[in-house]
């Protein structure tokens, strides 16, 4: 399931960051890479989403969020 479909408040685990090389590296620098647990703080029907990665909040454009696949059950 793409990150953009996760509901507000849910915690998920990043499965695969399927975007371009440059962005992938940047997201990794920001702490978001395969296996990271993230919490969706804000996800409206359109527009960018806000997620909590490690201890920071990131804004991610919807287009980018579409390309990041996640698996449910980030909560242990």
């Amino acid at each position: 399931m793409p990150l953009s479909m996760v509901q507000e408040g849910d915690e998920v685990k990043i499965h695969c960051v399927g975007c371009g090389f440059g962005l992938k590296r940047r997201l990794c620098d920001l702490g978001l890479y395969d296996g990271t647990k993230v919490q969706i703080v804000k996800n409206d029907i359109s527009g960018p989403i806000i997620l909590k990665v490690k201890d920071s909040k990131l804004v991610l454009g919807r287009g980018q969020a579409l390309k990041i696949m996640v698996e449910e059950g980030g909560r242990e």
């Binding site: 975007c19 371009g20 962005l23 940047r26 997201l27 920001l30 960018p48 806000i50 920071s56 909040k57 990131l58 804004v59 991610l60 454009g61 287009g63 980018q64």
Partner: peptide, 12 residues
């Protein structure tokens, strides 16, 4: 072309 991906930190 398309705009750069939108990635930004929201500082506290």
């Amino acid at each position: 072309g398309s705009s750069a991906p939108f990635v930004m930190e929201l500082p506290p």
